[in-house]
Design a binder for these strands. Structure first.
Lengths: 149, 149
DNA sequence: ATAATTGAGGACTATTTTAGTACTATTTAA
DNA sequence: TTAAATAGTACTAAAATAGTCCTCAATTAT
């Protein structure tokens, strides 16, 4: 599958919690307790999200992390690239250099198109969409007959 | 970044070569020689592509591999899932079971939406598109001034 | 028929990546 | 000034991936 790292997965869980909870500031320890993710791992993720301007940190006593802006303005693409770097399927799409695979790599330009499409898809989904009650289409579509087996 | 495995990358290179070359049948050894990928690795990739009905194999002397259909009918999505399994960003989107992350995972339904979008993007691009001379937009957009530095 | 050529399948190993941990420094409120 | 909190860095362990090798099966040419 098209892998996302576990850290990215955790990040969405953490951000969802923060977006749902009214409190503005959350300490790393509190988040670790609520989500069940180990504290050092939470810290690591928070640091990356701060660097990507998704979160704002406050040090010292009563410090903690807060969303840098409203959930509607935080795209999934931003979160993913904060954790994994630029969103692209192939190395060469990032490096601007092309690859050294001498024979048979005129493919690059076209990969860019694909990457762009995927990027657009991820840009269009925000944190607010993620915490919205899910549509759960597959459950709606289960044929009634299957309930009687 | 949203990683594709190296094997998938190789697969696109191999398939591009095969789609461009007039000859119908290519032995694994020939492909290894042309692409510079080690023979055992080529074999491994070919095996997966045969199982996914992207290639057809012929054993024995004068045997080899041929595309199962015209490049226009081979989607990038097919190739990727042949090498990496189902296209999805999160585990839970595949397993149909949801995850055990007790607190805070109502996200699933929405991830499905994202995965679907990405899948559509990859379905819409074919091998034929990949070997088409690339548009190379970034080269076109270089300001002329930059040539004089 | 038989030998040569080519793919199929599976098991194994090594490498790389990722996850997770620990420790130390820095900042700020009480 | 002390306690509470994040920042940063380096290290370790585990898991995933890539790559190799070996044996078996099939086909064709001699």
């Amino acid at each position: 599958m098209l892998r996302l790292s576990k850290l990215t997965d955790y990040a969405t869980v953490i951000l969802s919690f923060m977006a749902r909870d009214k409190a503005q500031v959350h300490a790393a320890m509190e988040i670790a307790a609520v989500t069940g993710i180990a504290l050092p791992t939470v810290s690591k993720i928070m640091k990356l999200l701060v660097n990507a301007d998704v979160l704002i940190s406050t040090r010292g006593a009563k410090g903690g992390y807060a969303l840098a802006r409203i959930p509607e303005k935080i795209s999934v693409a931003t979160v993913i690239s904060a954790l994994e770097g630029p969103i692209a399927l192939t190395e060469c799409s990032i490096s601007q250099q092309g690859c050294e695979q001498a024979s048979g790599c005129d493919i690059r330009g076209n990969w860019n198109l694909i990457n762009q499409t995927i990027n657009n898809a991820l840009e269009s989904v925000t944190l607010a969409d993620l915490i919205r009650p899910a549509a759960m289409p597959e459950e709606v579509l289960i044929p009634v007959a299957s309930l009687y087996r």
